[in-house]
Design a protein around this nucleic acid. Sequence first.
DNA 1: TGACACCGTTGCATATAGCGCTACGATCGT
DNA 2: ACGATCGTAGCGCTATATGCAACGGTGTCA
Lengths: 276, 276
Amino acid sequence: MERTSLRMMQRAVVGVAPVEGDATLSQSIRRAVDLIRRAAEHPLSLTEAAEVLGVHKSTALRILQTLESARFVRRTGAGTYVLGSGIIELSELALGSMDLRQFAAAPLRTLQRKTGHTVHLAQLTGDEIIYIDKVDSPAFDAVKLPSRIGRAVSIYASAVGKTILAYLPTEERDRLLSHVVFERFTPTTYADRESLDAELLRIREHGWAVDNGEHDTYVMCVAAPIRDSRGRVIAAASMTAIEVIANLDQLKESLPLLLDTAKQISGELGHTADLG
Amino acid sequence: MERTSLRMMQRAVVGVAPVEGDATLSQSIRRAVDLIRRAAEHPLSLTEAAEVLGVHKSTALRILQTLESARFVRRTGAGTYVLGSGIIELSELALGSMDLRQFAAAPLRTLQRKTGHTVHLAQLTGDEIIYIDKVDSPAFDAVKLPSRIGRAVSIYASAVGKTILAYLPTEERDRLLSHVVFERFTPTTYADRESLDAELLRIREHGWAVDNGEHDTYVMCVAAPIRDSRGRVIAAASMTAIEVIANLDQLKESLPLLLDTAKQISGELGHTADLG
DNA sequence: TGACACCGTTGCATATAGCGCTACGATCGT
DNA sequence: ACGATCGTAGCGCTATATGCAACGGTGTCA
């Protein structure tokens, strides 16, 4: 009993929400995941790790040692733990095996160079839209976009999300959106199913999508669909601008290049462009 | 007892070496790591996962569910498990926060474009040399180099490894090499401490290193050191050629560009090049 | 220089968390 | 329609992960 009470007490004190607390999940693995996440953010001392988890130091030590043996974390000279190369290696392995990413890499970089905008590639992966590549604009390294490879992006409040959604088979779209709880991030967000459906219709008519600051007021995007060999839209490429750099009209000037790029990538994937 | 015997039996049958079997390490975390690794290689069914670990299906299920809740793995429509975006996200977080990588990105890409060779950036991280960036040559996408971002590279049988080793403080170099068991990968490998020391001396004299097929017969490299603001060599940049594409002499023609690039990156890191 | 405080590490006894088992439901292929 | 295979849920047992106490090392302040 003392273990439980100590654990609960300390967890309450720390007040951090770790991985969701389903009872059927494995405790030690959840703790390990928590520590990996923390270590990815900033170097973690053993004592700190124990406090974060609300466990005894020896417990945290064993977890960290296990993770270290897998190279998921690494001990620095100062004795703190940081993310290890094992994670990075796995990630590269996964990204490298994505055909889409390989085919798209060169065209996306060309697009970036020609337009100067930050370019993204996003893919429907399971129930999420994930950025799988990103080419930064060298123009504004100071202003950091919140996007990151591997991160999920809003399915209804982003140009890439809406693009993929627009071309999805109806039942698949319904299934995805049934999970969704709509949230009005900004005044321009399509925050209910009806207005979103109308927007998706517009996207299908045009063949491209716009994000007019629908998730973050100052972030504008245009996106175009990418099709596989069977003609199905499986991904989307986008150009992003932060308001101060380029407004939406400027982005639209580069739209033909974006559409060309998307078509080119689709071609690499074996899509014969007959259907338009 | 039945549990143990079942486990040992099946593990023996599978014959795969998982994370080292130190008794003080956490069993379930080790199992989780194993499953992550497997899932990264190819989609994993539940039954397969259980077989791989040598545990009951329900056990494997609980582990996979926990990993899924952390988005370390993801369920595909077919019910199999593959690597999830959580891993990729973590990796990007770690790589993105490396100053060296950010400063080096543009110069390395310029170098690649000018020379056409595949370019690598490697860093001493803990006791390992890790690739932290790579710019592929568009010339040979068929011939795949074994290198990957995040993967450790031989410390004594690679151009980047030898370069970093050459400029390390003596006691640090001794410490690193004391762990090493030399192995003669190819006829050109420096497979003992004496010949390696002589090679390191040559590297310091020239200011750059060569890998003349010392790990893989057909892989040639040249590398140059990168220094931080205190003048210490913390990383190395290299150009790689596969024999059929460019031989070592061709690589050396581009050497001035490589040295320039390395110097430029060092400059970005705050190194004042007075000392040469 | 001593004494205190803090950190990481080890060994051990304990009970909890993770395990295998059984049984059920679903899906598939014959 | 049937068997076979797969994934899932619940349950009781114990192996496993845990907290604890004690130790050694390293600073830090008086």
